[in-house]
Design a protein around this nucleic acid. Structure first.
Length: 227
DNA sequence: ACTCGGATTCTCT
DNA sequence: GAGAATCCGAGTA
């Protein structure tokens, strides 16, 4: 059973991840992010929204040994992807299809790009707020709230205007990644979803069988041990 | 200035 | 499983 958190508690659970955690290649960081907490603090509200990361994808920068033409950073820095070339542990939020957002976490040392896309999280607290943000009934199933990169942005009200470039490793950030001690020992690596290029790279990582994971349930993948 | 495609989601059939 | 919605950013000129 997922650990429950007191929505009224003033202190956030666990601890912030160190920046060094993200100053590595995205394909190493991505599986290690599974099981970590995503915390969304909203000004004027006592209780933050919290969710556990269950599905991610790695996108490689132009200096990586493996070319990744599916990555936004592949052709080098542009105004849009500037955050990816900055320090690690920051939010790269971009808009897609004119109506949605996706959120990534920058990886690698400053000057080098690479990131991890958050594709799905398991809601832990603030589910009614998430449902309201998504325009769903307050008793909507958890997987309808945050299963999908743009669904989770909508549920947590993450936008490019407000959150692009935000430091996810600072205690005063509206969006944080934290480690509450929850341990994931293995995951499944599969091809990434929704891309046209580099479709063969196995850079999508998820908790096998988790109901909040997005996408087709029958993707071929290989088991990966974590830690 | 102009074109084109997109790391998606929802609503149908 | 297919098609629509919908617009920003990147590339080309």
């Amino acid at each position: 059973m997922p650990r429950q958190y007191n929505a009224g508690s003033a202190r956030l659970p666990g601890r912030l991840l160190p920046r060094s955690f993200f100053e590595r290649a995205p394909e190493l960081v991505a599986p290690l992010l599974l099981g970590k907490l995503l915390v969304r603090k909203v000004k004027g509200r006592k209780a933050p929204m919290m969710a556990r990361i269950v599905e991610v994808e790695a996108y490689l920068g132009p200096d990586h040994a493996t070319p990744d033409p599916a990555a936004h950073a592949h052709r080098g820095p542009t105004p849009r992807n500037a955050v990816l070339f900055g320090p690690a542990g920051h939010a790269y939020v971009y808009s897609i299809y004119g109506q949605y957002f996706c959120v990534n976490i920058s990886c690698e040392a400053e000057g080098r790009a690479g990131c991890v896309l958050l594709r799905a999280v398991e809601p832990l607290s603030g589910l009614e707020t998430m449902a309201r943000n998504r325009g769903l009934d307050l008793d909507a199933a958890p997987e309808m709230l945050t299963s999908g990169p743009s669904r989770l942005c909508q549920a947590l009200n993450v936008t490019r205007a407000e959150h692009n470039g935000l430091d996810l490793l600072a205690s005063d950030s509206a969006l944080q990644v934290r480690d509450d001690g929850f341990r994931v020992t293995e995951c499944l690596a599969t091809p990434r979803i929704g891309i046209r290029h580099a479709v063969e790279l196995p850079l999508r990582f998820h908790l096998e069988g988790h109901r909040c994971v997005s996408g087709p349930r029958r993707l071929v993948g290989r088991r990966v041990l974590i830690g």
